[in-house]
Design a binder for these strands. Structure first.
Lengths: 158, 158
DNA sequence: CTATGTATGTAATATCATAACACGTCAAGA
DNA sequence: TCTTGACGTGTTATGATATTACATACATAG
């Protein structure tokens, strides 16, 4: 398990470590980590929050990249395809994957107070879901699990 | 457990039974089941699929109700608040709750082939999720669990 | 009957997402 | 070397989803 965003941490480690793994992942798959794509991942990594495509776009265009929606959506789609980012359906937003390269189905913990997004270990959840679905003859291929609640910090405050 | 949409069933039973329960639920909570709201629920009940707000709106306006988005969104929001319908984030769409009145967190099984949506018993899944979240100090309040896959009928065909 | 809260109608607009096409670059093969 | 084709990026235009704000109607309690 990677360090969790919920706790104090040296954030530059997240960024550096994940970026390094991202370069490795793309190199391994033959995909090209271009400047826009790299920059988008960096932008997502700057915060443990989900950013909307238009948020990302705004930063991109401020830095001289294109300023039309497809620029952001394409880069984000690439990152999601590569397993380097996740889409948070509930928020219509995207977040960097904090442990790329390790195969995993996503389970997201979204703090309704500070909007931080963390990924939780999902194996047991997934097993329970598969079992429940199998009862009905349904074969689960992909699952989105998004939990809304309070992170440790915000839970204390409240 | 209510009859599952995946199997052959007398659909008028779904509709009639659920509508009756819906009237009971709203009466009990003091909420008003108005014509638009009732009609929207009926529309959702006509199929075991998720319908977009604009799909619903189109049918409403064809029947003489208002033809602006808020008409549909408000009725849908009401139904969701009352636990009579669910929002499927993944599809930006809504589906009737097939067992209103019984408290439940939702877990949806969405067939990627025929778009049927079923609700699966979720208690064990939810327990696993709560446990995983608790490890990280996160308190889950609401969880969205949406699984994409193949329903029994479409699974056989493939 | 009238005051009040709630529901509905409507216009306008915000937000999220994609289709379609043009242009540039780079690498593989004729 | 030249060409060709795949891919990435830029841009225009549009589509799809959702909300704000305000006006009107309507039911019910007082």
């Amino acid at each position: 398990m990677q360090p969790q965003p919920f706790h104090d941490h040296d954030h530059s480690h997240c960024t550096g470590d994940v970026m390094a793994r991202a370069e490795a992942v793309t190199a391994a798959s033959g995909a090209r980590m271009t400047p826009v794509r790299r920059r988008v991942l960096e932008i997502l990594l700057e915060e443990h929050r989900a950013l909307g495509a238009y948020d990302v776009l705004q930063r991109l265009s401020a830095e001289g990249f294109g300023n039309q929606p497809p620029v952001a959506y394409r880069a984000l789609e690439f990152l999601v395809d590569q397993g380097l980012a996740h889409r948070i359906q509930r928020l219509n937003a995207f977040t960097a994957c904090m442990h790329p390269g390790t195969s995993h189905a996503p389970a997201f913990l979204i703090c309704r107070s500070c909007n931080t997004v963390a990924e939780a270990p999902v194996a047991p959840v997934r097993a329970a879901l598969d079992a429940a679905a199998a009862e009905l003859g349904f074969a689960v291929e992909r699952a989105n699990i998004e939990a809304l609640g309070l992170c440790p910090a915000c839970g204390e405050t409240a």
